[in-house]
Amino acid sequence: MPRKYIVLLKVVTWVGCLSPLMLLVYEAVTNTLGPDPTANITFTTGYNTLLFLILSLAITPVRSLSPRLSWLIQFRRLLGLFAFFYGTLHFFTWIALYTSFDVNAMVSDILKRRYITAGMFAWLCLLPLAATSTTWSIRKLGGKRWRALHRLAYVAGIAGVIHYWWQVKPGVLSPLNMTIALGVLLLARPVLALMRRGKTQAA
């Protein structure tokens, strides 16, 4: 893929990734966040965390489908960092609008409410990934260790989806799409590895 297209696609990705936040800001300014602004902000930031995390996890398996898709790697870090970005906004929304910055309330929420425990755990998984997202970190850690560490993205995804299921009412199926998407990605890694092994043996 020619460089100019990559640059163009990067611009498009940035705009796409920022658009949920821009929309929230626009709605906040125009007072159109809806009947329950707090819930809207919470849902939008949380939903996009999972969305960008799943998109970033999709890059590797999609790339392996064809050598012609290898350029996709240049978007993985961007998507992953946006997942962390929205996760952090989601986290701060909880701190500010649900606990009112009360540390005791935060601690009791984390200990008592399993969906908050799961959400907190997911965010903590993303934290070291964001911290080691630079090229310098990859070199410092070494590719093998860096890759092992970044498998945490899957753990964060699983915890995030559990967090989603645990906070909807029992019987409500809205987290199903995200769950299926993550399930497919979790299966894709071993399946693709098997296929690769099959190929090398045949050759």
């Binding site: 707090t38 008592k112 399993r114 969906y115």
Partner: peptide, 22 residues
């Protein structure tokens, strides 16, 4: 008394800006 999964200590009043809902 908490109602799993939510705390019932506080609530959000509908139709107000987010900083006034609590």
């Amino acid at each position: 008394v908490d109602t799993v999964p939510w705390s019932q200590k506080s609530e959000r009043r509908i139709g107000l800006p987010f900083w006034q809902q609590h």
